[in-house]
Amino acid sequence: MKGPPLDFRNGMVDMSHGGGGRAMAQLVDELFIAAFDNDLLRQRNDQASFAVEAGRMVMTTDGYVISPLFFPGGDIGSLAVHGTINDVAMAGAVPLALSASFIIEEGLPLADLRRIVLSMAAASREAGVPVVTGDTKVVERGKGDGLFITTTGIGRVPPGITISGDLARPGDAILVSGSMGDHGVAVMSQRENLGFATDLKSDSAALHGLVAAMVAATPSIHCLRDPTRGGLASTLNELAHQSGVGMIIEETAIPLRAEVAGACELLGLDPLYVANEGKLIAILPEAEASRLLAVMRDHPLGREAAVIGRVVEDRHRFVQMQTAFGGRRIVDWLAGEQLPRIC
């Protein structure tokens, strides 16, 4: 017995879509399985079952609560794929598979849900990393904010690669893969209460291809991390603390788009604290830096890569910046939050 197909034009998610009955099965079939379509998902088990190779695996999980759900350059769906792939890739690993859990607020238009799931499926296909298992829950109106997505990713670390946040050493060079702050400013520009317009797009992208090229060229990379929430400043502080070192960066070397600099000036934000979703920081022995920089610049996602500073000995673990003005200052952890829910 089969009812009419889901109304993706005017329909809305209601409580029955999470109730475990026929309505839920229909949503899973007509939307999720159709969009993410792959052999493991088609088995319709409560888990995906597959063989693993010998070696080191990595696993990571991330919840996505961004507001608004759609923003220039992406949406919560593509972000949930890119963000988790990037967390896997920052171990130098090759991402293998994703899971996705959807917490949907009653009343979300089915058209929005479909647009998000299709975007997520496209991102997953483009990255070559399938969504192999998932879950759907519906919460009452007012108990969620449209849609929250949690994705988990697994990956395999190639032999001979050891990348970790505690491995930065004095004498290492610090590189970034491109301009800072694009994602955060693009999302903020969509907030109705901020009211400014920009052509800027989020940099949301899966970085595992870039990482694969990097680790192949320079297996001696010590640290990789994507500067998401808290931006470049907070991520460098995390790495300095984990490794027990100090850092000195050059303000003039940090790639920054004029639109981002302008928007931050207007809003009183510091671009070093604004989130990125398609950029990475790499730390490795100084002698290898120029080789890595050349490899990064050869990749479409690393065209604007730059060496921005160096790791130094410092028991205080300060991240310091030589300012363009000629002075020196600390680049500290973010205190509180700049703006809420941008990832």
Partner: peptide
């Protein structure tokens, strides 16, 4: 003064 490190100058 603090952000641009003016005291250094």
């Amino acid at each position: 003064i603090s952000r641009y490190g003016i005291e250094d100058l």
